[in-house]
């Protein structure tokens, strides 16, 4: 990222590059850096165990939570194993299983979002990618336990939203969250994939824009030079923000919590 000059205001396209930087903290770094304990839970009980979307019991600052999130790798091998953070239906179904388990045990859900999108593959379609995401959206809306979302890197469309219908949605300063990739949008609406910088601008995908649109609740500031320049500091900021919001959400009775979540999403675009 040497070409990005942090002394100027960054363009949305530059922020896309930062959000995709392979040196950016990934879920393994968050588990290592902010959890006192992590017990991974595998499998969707129907088809398999998706290595692109992982989850399990975690303890963050003494708080017991169910942690879920997409996994991006640090090496080629890990990325191939994790399918570059693009989950298949069984990943979304595993995430739903863990959310329901969290509800049963009365522990909050913490979801870390970092994906280019749900995997667009033949098998994914055959096993119902659309149904898996749709089911999650419907179930998350009514989930009777606190739910904190952090967009840590790429918030890629339905693949991101499939684990991101929370009571509060936090976003790292240089993360992005979009209905379509800037490249995809440019190739459709500009008929030229090279117009991605223009599309990135028009789509309003940065934390600053999304805060103004009230799609996210809070921006988590990153170290100067972005999260990859000082992962420890970035992870600590995420941990503090999660704990602050968990504390507030746990004070609400469950009916109020679910009602407020409904009201939050009902107001989107109004």
């Amino acid at each position: 990222m040497s070409e990005i000059d942090f002394s100027n205001k960054l363009t949305p396209w530059e922020i896309v590059q930062i959000a995709r930087n392979p040196g950016r903290p990934a879920i393994a770094d968050y588990i290592q850096g902010m959890c006192d304990d992590f017990v991974e839970l595998h499998g969707d009980r129907a088809f398999g165990d998706d290595r692109a979307l992982i989850g399990g019991f975690a303890t963050i600052g003494g708080e017991r939570v169910m942690l879920i999130g997409q996994r991006k790798g640090k090496s080629v091998e890990e990325n191939i194993l994790a399918n570059f953070g693009m989950a298949n239906p069984e990943g979304y179904r595993k995430a739903l299983r863990l959310m329901k388990l969290a509800e049963k045990y009365g522990i909050p859900v913490v979801s870390l979002v970092d994906t280019p999108g749900a995997y667009p593959g033949l098998d994914a379609e055959a096993r119902g990618q659309a149904e898996a995401i749709a089911r999650n959206l419907t179930e998350m809306a009514g989930l009777r336990t606190p739910f904190v979302v952090v967009i840590t890197g790429e918030g890629g469309s339905g693949g991101a939203l499939g684990i991101a219908v929370g009571d509060v949605v936090l976003m790292m300063q240089y993360a992005v969250y979009s209905v379509i990739s800037p490249e995809g949008c440019a190739s459709i609406l500009w008929r030229d994939g090279k117009k991605a910088p223009e599309a990135a601008e028009a789509l309003k995908i940065t934390s600053e824009s999304l805060k103004k649109l009230a799609v996210i609740d809070e921006i988590i500031a990153e170290p100067k030079g972005a999260a990859h320049s000082d992962p420890g500091q970035a992870i600590d900021a995420v941990k503090k923000a999660i704990l602050k919001h968990l504390k507030a959400l746990k004070k609400l009775d469950t009916d109020t919590l679910v009602q407020k979540r409904y009201d939050k999403y009902a107001a989107m675009g109004r």
């Binding site: 009514g142 339905g158 939203l161 209905v179 789509l203 799609v215 409904y262 675009g269």
Partner: peptide, 20 residues
């Protein structure tokens, strides 16, 4: 696409209605 993230949020919004 022209309503960007607000369109994406409609997926959550409509499903919240179905959930009820």
């Amino acid at each position: 696409m022209h309503e960007g993230i607000i369109s994406l949020m409609q997926m959550a919004k409509t499903c919240a209605g179905i959930s009820r």
